[in-house]
């Protein structure tokens, strides 16, 4: 099938009709855009559902009213759901604040620590794998990749047992119910090393030779040349680990027991009362607040993120 192309001059700029668009882009491209639009809508729909539900009354949630606000309905936006969601989680007597904020502080601290740790370990390991002559490094790399194949659920209990058994070097007790358990096991990411290694391998060796001639060693070469060149990949690794650490639920639940050690994702589950029910609008209000940092972070880094994914050979 041939697609007839129309000279650009035949389409008036600024006011394109659908026919004009089709003529300009061609049916196949239109189909692709249509599919992409549908895909994007599919991806955005849960967010729209979350935000709209968070602003409804419980009655509108129950009756399945999609748009209870003017002009279709008479309800006002239920911003108080957000305050109610914070209130529903409870009060932290130790710090004298809503547990929501205590959870948020824990989430921020744990996430930042994990991301920082992952960045350091991933950069060092990926650089060694990509740029250095180390005997057996390919074998080591394959061994490392093999650990990705082990399902996380399979190792979660043994890892939790370790947290009970490891002694806390900064105080009494073990790592259990301590920031150590929330942070240390995730200070290295095999995926991060893999992604950065792929990126570092694309940096021409000539650059290193030139740097060497200028008296640079590995450390300076890594810090002054490799890292600035690898910003998109670094942002990708940071973002992926940020999302992962921020959303982590099972692990924090397993290795903490005090409310004041828990994170936002654990707090979210409190809206589901077993053998009872749930207030979906409050749960959605809570969820909306939980995802805000992820969206903000992505918003500011999405350009680098896209570049990072496309330049590391990870695109589909």
């Amino acid at each position: 099938m041939t697609v007839r192309s129309v000279p650009p001059s035949s389409v008036r700029p600024g006011r394109l009709s659908i026919a004009g668009l089709i003529a300009r882009a061609g049916w196949s491209r239109l189909a692709i855009y249509l599919l992409l639009t549908l895909g994007a809508l599919g991806a955005v729909f849960p967010f729209i559902y979350m935000i709209t539900t968070s602003l409804k009354t419980y009655g509108s949630v129950i009756t399945g009213n999609l748009w209870p606000w003017p002009p279709l309905g008479a309800e006002t936006l239920q911003w108080k759901n957000y305050a109610d969601a914070i209130d529903a989680i409870g009060w932290d007597k130790q710090w004298g604040m809503y547990l929501f904020f205590r959870y948020a502080i824990n989430s921020i601290f744990v996430t930042l620590a994990v991301v920082a740790g992952v960045m350091i370990t991933s950069v060092l390991a990926a650089y060694a794998f990509a740029q250095m002559h180390v005997p057996g490094k390919n074998f080591l790399f394959i061994l490392l990749l093999a650990t990705i194949m082990i399902p996380g659920d399979l190792t979660i209990v043994p890892k939790a047992v370790m947290m009970y058994q490891f002694k806390n070097p900064f105080g009494s007790g073990s790592w259990y119910n301590n920031y150590l358990a929330l942070i240390v096991p995730f200070l290295a990411s095999v995926f991060g090393i893999f992604l950065l290694r792929q990126f570092f391998m694309q940096i021409p060796k000539d650059l290193f030779d030139a740097a060497l001639m200028d008296g640079s060693g590995h450390t300076r070469y890594l810090l002054t040349i490799v890292l600035p060149l690898s910003r998109p990949a670094l942002v990708s690794v940071a973002l992926i680990n940020f999302i992962w650490a921020w959303d982590s639920f099972k692990w924090p639940l397993l290795v903490t027991r005090d409310s004041n050690m828990r994170v936002l994702a654990v707090g979210l589950q409190q809206f589901l009362v077993q053998e009872g029910g749930t207030k979906i609008q409050l749960m959605m209000a809570f969820s909306s607040m939980v995802v805000v940092p992820v969206i903000v972070f992505y918003f500011f880094t999405q350009q680098y993120f896209t570049q990072g994914i496309t330049t590391t050979g990870l695109k589909g």
């Binding site: 390991a125 080591l140 490392l144 093999a146 650990t147 370790m162 096991p185």
Partner: peptide, 29 residues
């Protein structure tokens, strides 16, 4: 010296990672 130190450090990180990934729980009483 820096180079050697760097290689050693990197290998240490990698070896640590591999060990962490492969770690098995000790038999628990």
């Amino acid at each position: 010296k820096t180079r050697k130190l760097f290689v050693a450090l990197s290998l240490l990180v990698v070896a640590g990672l591999v060990l962490a990934g492969c770690a098995q729980p000790t038999p628990t009483p």
